[in-house]
């Protein structure tokens, strides 16, 4: 049985905001099936009582004083923008026509 179906890969592509072609979906479905089948080996490790580690080092939140510090100018912040209008990022429409 395959670990992942083509429909599931299409769903993952949607969640990942990747507009993939049918051909790409077929290709990735085959590859992801092999990869997931292999990494599933982690489930064979008996680890019920083991706490998970999200980080290598035991770090807690780090704070700094809430003080005004120099930051990027609007020109610097916008310097890499694909589109700019009135010193702002210009983006495609976010809401539907009806909204």
């Amino acid at each position: 049985m395959s670990a992942i179906t083509r429909d599931e890969v299409a769903h993952l592509a949607r969640l990942s905001r990747l507009a993939l072609s049918d051909e790409e979906l077929d290709h990735y479905a085959t590859q992801l099936d092999v990869i997931i089948g292999s990494v599933a080996r982690v489930s064979e490790v008996a680890a019920e009582d083991v706490p998970p580690s999200s980080h290598a080092l035991p770090l807690t939140n780090v704070f700094r004083p809430d003080e005004v510090r120099p930051c990027l100018t609007p020109e610097q912040a916008l310097s890499g923008a694909p589109a700019v209008e009135d010193q702002r990022f210009r983006v495609p429409r976010i809401l539907g026509e009806e909204a």
Binding site: V42, V50, P52
Partner: peptide, 13 residues
């Protein structure tokens, strides 16, 4: 739980 969570436990081990 089966994948990311379990991998984090392996990380502890």
């Amino acid at each position: 739980d089966a994948y990311y969570g379990q991998a984090q436990k392996v990380r502890t081990l």
